[in-house]
């Protein structure tokens, strides 16, 4: 990556870990995605910004398995994939923290972390009697939360409904971080959080990047995006209109691009990796 201005050179050198092309998704008469593209390169934090209804959530849901695009292609590490459920995406190593968090309030923290991929006891207890290894799941859940610096939660067997919004967010992020092996997608992870908790989630994204984990971050919060993102994907009217970096443009430019007040020429964009 000696010459970051030569976009074609870098794009050929490094294969994107996630690549979406010409994605179309409609909901009745509403067009969610109108031939949208997306590239996520290894080790980078890609922010996805856009106005309400620009198709940000719809776009990432095509990669997390929650939506199946009407047409277009999704590739993971160069292999074409067709996700029909979040489980498909999860087994491909892509974990998502949804805007709604997708946690089950009545179940406890440990159960939520392992929801849908429960551990079974070894031996006949697990194989014949299908007994879950609750002890192991609780131990791993506690370890995971403490690794993420969220260890002060009182009790791993506490129901999620007894937690605050920030704590629930932490549970959802911990789940993604625990199982995500290739990509972690975060949809508005700080929207419901206070200042301190937001800072903690940002720190977490930093740490994920330090570990080399590629992250897609949807956010409305421009200062946050410009602080943490390597590249910024601007979504407008269901498609990608520009890819910029915090170095090439400022927050005012980003808003102008989002709203259509500004166009970015091809040669000022950053379609390839910067790291």
């Amino acid at each position: 990556m000696t010459d970051s201005n030569t976009k074609s050179a870098t794009a050929i050198d490094v294969e994107p870990i996630i690549k979406g092309r010409n994605l179309v998704k409609t909901f009745g008469h509403v067009v969610g995605l109108n031939h949208a593209d997306l590239d996520l390169f290894p080790g980078e934090v890609l922010a996805v910004i856009g106005d309400n209804g620009a198709g940000k959530s719809t776009l990432i849901k095509c990669f997390s398995g929650a939506h199946t695009p009407d047409s277009g292609t999704v590739e993971v590490e160069g292999h074409s994939v067709h996700f029909r459920s979040t489980n498909d995406a999860r087994s491909a190593g892509i974990e998502t923290v949804f805007q709604t968090l997708a946690v089950s309030p009545a179940l406890d923290i440990a159960t939520n972390l392992f929801l849908g991929r429960e551990l079974r006891k070894p031996g006949p207890l697990g194989q014949i009697f299908r007994m879950m290894d609750k002890k192991q799941m609780r131990a791993q859940a506690a370890q995971q939360l403490s690794d993420l610096g969220i260890s002060t939660m009182q009790d791993i067997t506490q129901a999620v409904e007894t937690l605050s919004g920030g704590q629930r967010q932490a549970v959802a992020v911990a789940r993604a971080a625990a199982f995500g092996s290739k990509v972690i997608i975060l949809d508005e992870p700080t929207a419901a959080l206070g200042v301190r908790e937001s800072a903690r989630v940002l720190q977490l994204i930093h740490d994920l990047r330090e570990r080399g984990m590629p992250v897609i971050l949807i956010s409305h919060n421009m200062p946050q995006v410009f602080e943490i993102a390597d590249r910024i994907h601007v979504q407008r009217l269901g498609r990608r209109v520009a890819v910029i970096t915090p170095q090439s443009h400022n927050a005012n430019d980003a808003v102008a691009i989002m709203t259509g007040a500004m166009q970015v020429p091809e040669d000022e964009q950053t379609p390839g990796p910067v790291r």
Binding site: S85, R90, T100, V103, S104, A106, L115, F129, R130, M131
Partner: peptide, 29 residues
């Protein structure tokens, strides 16, 4: 009682009743 408390299926029964959308997004069919 055993099945509900100690098996994944039992957990999924609770999860589906609690919040079906969250359950679906968590990878439960």
């Amino acid at each position: 009682s055993y099945i509900l408390r100690n098996t994944a299926w039992g957990t999924h029964v609770y999860a589906v009743g609690d919040d079906p959308e969250a359950a679906e997004l968590s990878g439960i069919n």
